[in-house]
């Protein structure tokens, strides 16, 4: 599903530049649930942004579902993001003047799905994350966990090939974190490929594979026995 080879990325900071990713090689198969760990500043978010086509790499190869990702125009990148990728952010990033339902329907709008169909589909995904009764509430009327579940429903609505989550539980307490991970595990069980950036060991162990980043290189990459989050909920 994802294949990157010798990926480099550095940020220019005035006269000197900061080399963040120093040759990343890694492969993700269909249906994997991968945790990316590492200390703060190790380049986890940078890697995820490049995988999400929100940022470009300096050198190296990136192939997503067999499509080489290179020198994309803004419009093309927008199309690929819409078709291939779903994002889940630490700070949820819901649009505050749109109801839960409208937030979930937004990626479908950019796919030019007709309005009625869009609403139905969005409602299905809200039901899936257990928030159907909250469909017409604004984000400000929802708890943190509920917000993140709306965000997950939104990421799922466009039926992307890969879900990218940057510290999806970073802003949540442990109980709500487990609820969110339970949901992510269920989505993964249905065969979706998911990458989760996290600081927390227990969250990482709810994935199926852990990749450790340190000083811009992968220092450890291991398959693990998955801990089911459902038992804590």
């Amino acid at each position: 599903m994802i294949e990157i080879k010798d990926l480099h990325k550095s940020y220019k900071m005035g006269s000197n530049s900061l080399h963040v990713l120093k040759g990343i090689n890694f492969k993700v198969e269909d249906g994997e649930l991968v945790a990316i760990m590492g200390s703060s500043g190790s380049g986890k978010s940078t890697l995820l942004n490049i995988l999400g086509m929100l940022d470009g790499a300096d050198s190296g190869e990136y192939t997503l579902d067999g499509v080489p990702i290179k020198n994309l125009s803004e419009t093309k990148a927008a199309q690929y993001r819409n078709k291939f990728l779903g994002f889940i952010f630490q700070s949820f990033n819901l649009i505050n003047y749109k109801s839960a339902l409208e937030n979930v329907a937004l990626p479908l709008y950019y796919q030019k799905v007709p309005r009625k169909e869009r609403q139905e589909k969005a409602m299905q995904y809200l039901e899936k994350v257990g928030l159907k009764p909250w469909a017409h509430h604004l984000p400000s009327e929802l708890s943190g966990g509920q917000k993140q579940r709306v965000a997950i429903a939104r990421a799922m609505a466009a039926e992307p090939k890969v879900l990218l989550a940057d510290e999806p539980t970073g802003a949540l307490d442990s109980k709500t974190s487990y609820e969110v991970m339970d949901l992510i595990q269920q989505i993964n069980d249905e065969g979706n490929t998911i990458l989760v950036v996290t600081h927390e060991e227990d969250i990482a162990h709810m994935c199926k594979r852990i990749v450790h980043l340190k000083d811009g290189v992968i220092v450890e990459d291991k398959k693990i026995e998955q801990v089911r989050a459902g038992q804590y909920v």
Binding site: G52, L54, E74, T75, A78, Q79, R81, N82, K83, F87, N93, I95, L106, P107, Y110, Q111, R154, A158
Partner: peptide, 9 residues
Amino acid sequence: VRKALGARP
């Protein structure tokens, strides 16, 4: 966010 969700320029 809109752009991340696939909004074109």
